[in-house]
């Protein structure tokens, strides 16, 4: 599952539309699901479920008809398309509202409807453009749970384009970051979260200055964060017992000791502002 990140106007939606052949590309080539892109975009579209960012619906239809219509457009035969539409509406938690005209749906309901429409033909690859926009916290969590289930249990490949970094953190294992139409970062979330050199955070009850001084004497790079905790860079895992020892010697009472991770917000900010990650 890949998260597609980038500031506004970075080209996320354009990239998605290009992948689906909705906008014409001037150059470049590649493959999607083993199919040559852009030569076979219509075959690619047949195998992709796309949830657009925009608020879009087919006026005049009710919920279940909208989903069944998308099933039919994807090639599911008449009754089977309707049966499958009901099944997907159940999965997406669209209850009796499925019989209401889509014009009367709230933003959250329309989001769920678009998700059902993207999913109804059981595509192996899902492209979800801002799937949690307009959802309340419960619904957002439920949506992310569904996305996780599709990825982990049903083996779907998912490209999740979003501004909401906690969403990416909670479901994605890879990140692509676009800035100004260019790929700035492409890596696993695990690699990105790891700092350039091993670092730990240590929070102390009381005065941390004696421990900081002692560590500096031993050659560690120590900085004090705004919350008073110490950030110790260049410390390997096998040196952690020594750290406890030094804390005991300086009378420091350790409240918390954790390996430092780059936060996604930090990565996003740095990538967007073209500064190098520490």
């Amino acid at each position: 599952m890949t998260g597609l990140l980038g500031p506004n106007g970075s080209g996320k939606s354009t990239l998605i539309k290009s992948l689906l052949g909705l906008v014409r590309t001037q150059q470049g080539s590649g493959s999607v699901l083993g199919m040559e892109w852009p030569q076979r975009v219509r075959e690619i579209r047949d195998q992709v479920g796309y949830l657009p960012e925009d608020d879009c619906y087919i006026a005049g239809l009710n919920g279940i008809e909208s989903v069944a219509f998308m099933a039919h457009l994807a090639g599911l035969p008449g009754t089977e398309g309707l049966r499958r539409a009901h099944e997907i509406c159940d999965f997406c938690d669209i209850g009796e509202e499925r019989y209401r005209p889509v014009e009367s749906y709230s933003t959250g309901m329309r989001q769920k409807l678009k998700f059902a429409q993207a999913l109804v033909h059981d595509p192996p690859f899902l492209i979800l453009d801002e799937p949690t926009t307009g959802l309340d916290p419960d619904q957002r969590e439920a949506m992310l749970r569904r996305i996780r289930t599709l990825y982990r249990t049903h083996g779907k490949s998912i490209l999740l384009s979003t501004h909401i970094l906690p969403d990416v953190r909670s479901v994605c294992d890879q990140v692509i970051m676009l800035v100004g139409g260019e790929v700035r970062i492409i890596d696993t979330l695990e690699n990105l979260s790891r700092p350039a050199e091993p670092t730990v955070h240590i929070a102390i009850y009381g005065d941390s200055a004696p421990l900081a001084g002692r560590l500096r004497e031993d050659g560690f790079s120590v900085t004090e964060d705004s919350d008073g905790s110490l950030r110790i860079a260049g410390i390997d895992t096998d040196q952690i017992p020594g750290l406890w020892q030094k804390a005991a010697e300086t009378g420091a009472c350790v409240r918390r000791l954790t390996p430092a991770m780059n936060s996604l917000d930090e990565i996003f900010f740095h990538a967007a502002s073209e500064t190098e990650l520490r």
């Binding site: 219509r42 579209r45 657009p52 879009c56 619906y57 087919i58 006026a59």
Partner: peptide
């Protein structure tokens, strides 16, 4: 015009329809 207003064309063309 209804499809343009409700952006339904995004749904139509997310399927293999020219």
């Amino acid at each position: 015009s209804y499809d343009l207003r409700s952006k339904a064309y995004l749904l139509y063309f997310s399927r293999p329809l020219s």
